[in-house]
Nucleic acid binder design. Structure first.
Lengths: 242, 242
DNA sequence: GTTATCGGCATGTCTAGATGAGTTTACTTG
DNA sequence: CAAGTAAACTCATCTAGACATGCCGATAAC
């Protein structure tokens, strides 16, 4: 274990040094899901007041490393998930490969006319009816992303009624015998809009990664799904391999 | 002016009530850029301890409403920009486009020992001397991204003195006859840290895209550069074509 | 066996005060 | 008048202590 020397005169705030030290220890010695020692204990160990220690832990919470719960303790969170963007990478598979369970919750299922962005990306005329499917994905009970899917209604007429959860791509594959392939992704970041912060259980001031992607029929190349995904930026890391 | 009644027994935290009250007053009576009364004054006005009032102001900072500066005061910020989808998507740029007509300004050029993250990605032992090059890129006078480059000192001994700007990859190519190839990128988003907000001329509460990338010698596959880029998220959109 | 209660321990909130450090203002001095 | 300096004002950090509130397991009552 490295020295836990807190330098009180070096200019750097004590709580900041403690935060760094704790971050280090967490990444080395703690399993996700395990609990930190209590604030009182940690304060004693570092030789600081409990308030100072709490300030340090607040830093760790900001960076999404730990989570406090009243009466229980401070829990170490999972490391951000590595999401490899490729042609066939699918969220569900990716997580199940890591031994995590992904749950998809349907938030909205509507028929709407395609506006410019959606119409353009799906390659259909404006006002063509499309299905707007809004889903929330959770991994081990914790929300990871909100996705707005847009698919042409004509192509998947029964989806409005019969899709009730699970992998959308699997649903399309088994009901329509069509495989999808990702052709392009646009990535940017914003602060969460609308209900996203609430749905993702995150503060309004922390950013989300927005990924726009178009999926085409793997055989014909026709665009069949346009998806706009908002990931909690502190829980996801996109890996791009050229 | 509305009543400023703080209910100390209603279950809601005092700081939270004050935050709400202040938010209300700010939106009604304060111009962006103006300063709030000092913490001591506000604490007196609400009849609470200064720490409690500071906690309330922290809430306001979290929601990006105000900004504190040491010694000056607490300033009301501009209303958050409404991110309309597609408004800024004209800035679409390829991540690969290194040779843009961008101006590169060198912020720092130092020799440091490689710490764990840098050492691991460059495949060198810890504390190996590396060059830490911090650059700011501007397009049309507007700051675009800040990049921290790390290259092994031993491999590029003269770079500390002779690199004075322009494309780093071109510099390496013409001085060392080595072409670089990007092997992987990790993308996430955070709020700007350190001086980044100031350098990028953006508010603290708007996110940056962080891209970690490793560049290797195109012939040998040896990692030669590790770069951590922070893009203004409102000016960039990464396009990923699998 | 099941339920209720209670105590110990965790985090959450609030107060009080001291000191440090950056910024601005006003005054003093040359 | 100008420059330098000191005071006053700002936020920043740290300490100390008190009490509230939520969680959980152990024990007691049913």
């Amino acid at each position: 274990m490295s020295l836990l020397a807190i330098n009180r005169f070096g200019g750097e705030a004590v709580y900041s040094q403690i935060a760094r030290q704790l971050e280090n220890e967490i990444q080395r010695f703690y399993q996700p899901g395990s609990y930190l020692p209590s604030e009182a204990l940690l304060a004693q160990r570092f030789g600081v007041n409990r308030h100072t220690l709490r300030r340090a832990i607040e830093e760790l919470m900001q960076s999404g490393l730990v989570e406090r719960s009243h009466g229980k303790g401070t829990r170490v969170l999972d490391a951000p998930i590595d999401y490899t963007l490729g042609q066939n990478t699918r969220f569900t598979e990716l997580l199940e490969a890591e031994g995590m369970t992904a749950v998809t919750r349907i938030l909205r299922k509507l028929q709407i006319p395609a506006r410019d962005g959606v119409a353009k990306r799906l390659g259909v005329p404006e006002n063509t009816p499309v299905i707007w499917l809004e889903t929330l994905r959770l991994v081990d009970e914790r929300p990871y992303c909100v996705i707005s899917h847009f698919v042409p209604l004509q192509r998947f007429p029964e989806m409005l009624d019969s899709y009730t959860g699970g992998s959308l791509h699997d649903f399309i594959l088994s009901n329509y015998q069509v495989s999808l392939r990702r052709v392009e992704s646009l990535v940017t970041a914003t602060l969460p809009l609308g209900d996203d912060a609430g749905l993702l259980h995150m503060p309004q001031h922390q950013p989300v990664l927005r990924v726009k992607s178009v999926n085409v029929d793997v055989t014909t190349g026709v665009p069949l799904e346009y998806a706009l995904t908002r990931f909690r930026a502190d829980r996801i890391q996109l890996r791009i391999c050229p």
